[in-house]
Amino acid sequence: MQRALRLDDVGRRYTIRGPWVLRGIDLTINAGELIRVEGTNGTGKSTLLRLLARTEAPTEGRVSGRPRTAYVPERFPSALPFTPVGYLTHLGTVHGLTRAAAARAADDWLTRFGAAPYARTPMTQLSKGSSQKVAVAQALLAEPELLVLDEAWTGLDTEARGELERAVAERTAAGGAVVFVDHDPSRLAGVPDATYRVHDGTLNRRTEQVTSPVGPYVVVEVQGPPDRRPPTAPHTRAEEPTPGTYRLTVPASHSDVLLRDLLTARPPWHVLSVIRADTPHIPHDQEDHR
């Protein structure tokens, strides 16, 4: 399993006699997993993420597995002598794309994050939020097997935040692993496969399950031939109000992934309606009117 990343009894400290920032960490990240890491400031979350991105080596213990990794730092500098397109093309080729593919991917991702208008403005003139979009695009354009996001949402505008959540959903649906830290507890709520808490230099898996994640949701009604189940995308709740018609409730971040699955299935499903909802459950008295 080359693509899985494994930490065995990993510890990290920055000076020979200094305090341990992290110690006794055991963690496996498999392909397709979405992992959330929590913890108060200064507990070593960023250090853990850098160990996962393998930009730092552990002081003790072992890190094994080498997925193609991309990393989004907490604060991305705008002091780079490039334009966003120029920088992203360079980074795309560093990630192994050809120059043409890298330039195309750079344009696509900048457009997705609403950064196309300043794609050719020197990065030194960009605002903090705008350069954060470049940082995020840098990590996404090469479709990494492991995506490490260190508070990547901080500084992004609302549309870009939603886009990044959708991009994370796409990445995991495509079999990539994503590890993220974010201060907002509602970030991708209910979606992570596991949540870990860094506390006193150790890592604990949070066991209390967040059963009903807080919205927003997308409700998709689809029709297909009888006795055929719709594709069960992760985090999708399926109901069958009438035979052959399914009502699928999915976190808003994963709606595009679900729709793509439905429409590219063979034979494709027929989409009757797509409605945004703030709560997962639609009250019964309203159900009949739909």
Partner: peptide, 9 residues
Amino acid sequence: AAGHCVAAA
């Protein structure tokens, strides 16, 4: 930070 992005890759 830019160095980390490249180093991860």
